[in-house]
Amino acid sequence: GSLMYASIFGNVSAIIQRLYSGTARYHTQMLRVREFIRFHQIPNPLRQRLEEYFQHAWSYTNGIDMNAVLKGFPECLQADICLHLNRSLLQHCKPFRGATKGCLRALAMKFKTTHAPPGDTLVHAGDLLTALYFISRGSIEILRGDVVVAILGKNDIFGEPLNLYARPGKSNGDVRALTYCDLHKIHRDDLLEVLDMYPEFSDHFWSSLEITFNLRDTNMIPGSPGSTELEGGFSRQRKRKLSFRRRTDKDTEQPGEVSALGPGRAGAGPSSRGRPGGPWGESPSSGPSSPESSEDEGPGRSSSPLRLVPFSSPRPPGEPPGGEPLMEDCEKSSDTCNPLSGAFSGVSNIFSFWGDSRGRQYQELPRCPAPTPSLLNIPLSSPGRRPRGDVESRLDALQRQLNRLETRLSADMATVLQLLQRQMTLVPPAYSAVTTPGPGPTSTSPLLPVSPLPTLTLDSLSQVSQFMACEELPPGAPELPQEGPTRRLSLPGQLGALTSQPLHRHGSDPGS
């Protein structure tokens, strides 16, 4: 009898404990919600809404976190579960008819179910419309201010047509639940991603989709105040780019002037030289400038040598048109050559190039014969006009050509200096018209024969001689050997007369 009593008592207590286990969990969670309300000092109306929603959600799901349970299964099984949970929507909604099984599984994985109690606001006026909503159960109302403009029910759709707008718009009203509602919502990016994977279904979906109420604000059109608020930074940046392009296009129409201050000032006329910023005076940081632009901040801005204009002085008759350009485009679109090309026009420029290279940067340069637009006047290309890779490749080509020119210049200078040193070592320090008596009659020769300089066969020296023939050397430049009979510069000019005159010897006659 005691054994029977113990078994009955144990079973009854276990049954009672299981009955009250759900209630215990409910009270535990309710205590957490109330502690949250007390800690954050939530006001009474919002506090009442929180408690009511918790009670309804507990009775609806029995305190089970559906998302946590669903995430515990593998992905393939999750797709089947989501397809079952959203079967009513996918079967009865017209846009989803005719979709393949794979497309429906992908869509079912992207849908999220939302449960809303009465009085809950789903979308506020001015919120971004980031999702498309399908009503599965219940009814909602749409308000503009305090005026109800629409009441939607089961199988209705609200949001915005995503295929017509590249960016999400703003809501033009509040969406509030009238009863307990079940909503299926899919985010904008998720829907577009699935439709991109199934393009054959995309056309059918957009053609058959009928949005019951379009929440997009109709005033959000390009150029409206609301649109400016939504895309303020983007609009200002776009206007700045367009104004920069218009100014650079105007600059290219004036090829007669070359400016070292950047493309923003290349198009300024002579009357605007004294102004601080020219056409860019209202925004000094709008356009890029070269490193020399920092010198323009000092006094005497109108007389600054940074602004270059072609000189009108005539060229000498024998002067060549100019050196070879550094870039391939210089032959086609440049009416002034790079300062480095002028360094190779003569030997005198070679000796004085490194010492006063900055001073020569603004000297007169030889002109190319074609009066085409200036290379320095070409505006900086924006990322939309020329690819970045093209600019980098041009810079690399320019750097390689500069290296080759520097190597060639160093070799030419070394060769010229070597020839000058050899000339100085071969010439005796001094010569006299009267020579010392020699031991015999073989001493009648006034000077030792001097062998002429070897013929220069280097390509670089031939180019130097060509430049010497075309360029007029300055007075202080050293002379180079030329073709024809060679003669030492330090010898007297009348050596031929010395050989014809008898030598005057000093000596005593033994017979006297």
Score class of each variant (00 low, 15 high):
residue 131 A to S: 12
residue 133 Y to F: 07
residue 134 F to H: 01
residue 135 I to T: 01
residue 138 G to V: 02
residue 139 S to Y: 07
residue 141 E to F: 01
residue 142 I to W: 01
residue 142 I to G: 02
residue 148 V to L: 06
residue 149 V to A: 06
residue 150 A to E: 01
residue 151 I to H: 05
residue 154 K to Y: 04
residue 157 I to V: 10
residue 161 P to V: 03
residue 161 P to S: 05
residue 167 R to K: 10
residue 167 R to Y: 08
residue 168 P to W: 05
residue 171 S to C: 06
residue 171 S to N: 01
residue 180 Y to W: 05
residue 180 Y to T: 11
residue 182 D to Y: 09
residue 184 H to G: 06
residue 186 I to C: 03
residue 188 R to F: 05
residue 190 D to F: 01
residue 190 D to Q: 03
residue 191 L to Q: 02
residue 192 L to I: 09
residue 194 V to L: 04
residue 199 P to V: 03
residue 200 E to Y: 03
residue 201 F to W: 13
residue 203 D to W: 07
residue 204 H to P: 07
residue 204 H to V: 10
residue 207 S to D: 13
residue 209 L to Y: 03
residue 211 I to A: 02
residue 216 R to H: 13
residue 218 T to W: 08
residue 221 I to N: 12
residue 222 P to V: 12
residue 222 P to M: 10
residue 225 P to N: 06
residue 226 G to R: 10
residue 229 E to I: 13
residue 229 E to S: 10
residue 231 E to N: 13
residue 232 G to H: 10
residue 234 F to T: 11
residue 236 R to V: 13
residue 236 R to Q: 10
residue 236 R to P: 12
residue 240 R to Q: 07
residue 242 L to Y: 14
residue 243 S to V: 12
residue 243 S to A: 09
residue 245 R to W: 07
residue 245 R to L: 13
residue 253 E to P: 09
residue 256 G to R: 08
residue 257 E to Q: 09
residue 271 S to F: 14
residue 273 R to Y: 07
residue 284 P to Q: 11
residue 284 P to W: 15
residue 295 E to Q: 13
residue 298 G to Y: 15
residue 302 S to T: 05
residue 303 S to F: 06
residue 303 S to G: 13
residue 305 P to S: 10
residue 305 P to I: 15
residue 310 P to T: 03
residue 311 F to L: 14
residue 314 P to F: 11
residue 316 P to T: 13
residue 321 P to Q: 09
residue 323 G to F: 14
residue 324 E to N: 15
residue 328 E to H: 15
residue 328 E to A: 13
residue 331 E to K: 12
residue 332 K to D: 11
residue 332 K to I: 10
residue 334 S to G: 11
residue 337 C to T: 07
residue 337 C to V: 14
residue 338 N to P: 06
residue 340 L to K: 05
residue 344 F to P: 08
residue 345 S to G: 06
residue 346 G to K: 04
residue 348 S to R: 08
residue 352 S to I: 03
residue 358 R to D: 04
residue 362 Y to G: 10
residue 364 E to C: 04
residue 370 A to C: 10
residue 374 S to A: 09
residue 375 L to I: 07
residue 379 P to W: 01
residue 380 L to S: 11
residue 386 R to S: 12
residue 387 P to V: 06
residue 388 R to L: 06
residue 394 R to L: 06
residue 395 L to C: 03
residue 399 Q to I: 03
residue 404 R to H: 05
residue 405 L to C: 05
residue 405 L to D: 03
residue 406 E to V: 08
residue 410 S to E: 08
residue 416 V to Q: 07
residue 417 L to I: 04
residue 418 Q to A: 12
residue 419 L to K: 13
residue 423 Q to G: 07
residue 424 M to Q: 05
residue 424 M to P: 10
residue 428 P to D: 13
residue 442 T to V: 10
residue 446 P to K: 15
residue 448 L to K: 10
residue 452 P to V: 11
residue 455 T to D: 06
residue 459 D to G: 08
residue 460 S to E: 14
residue 460 S to I: 09
residue 463 Q to L: 10
residue 463 Q to K: 04
residue 469 A to L: 08
residue 475 P to K: 09
residue 478 P to S: 08
residue 481 P to K: 15
residue 496 G to W: 04
residue 499 T to C: 15
residue 507 G to Q: 12
residue 510 P to V: 09
residue 510 P to Q: 09
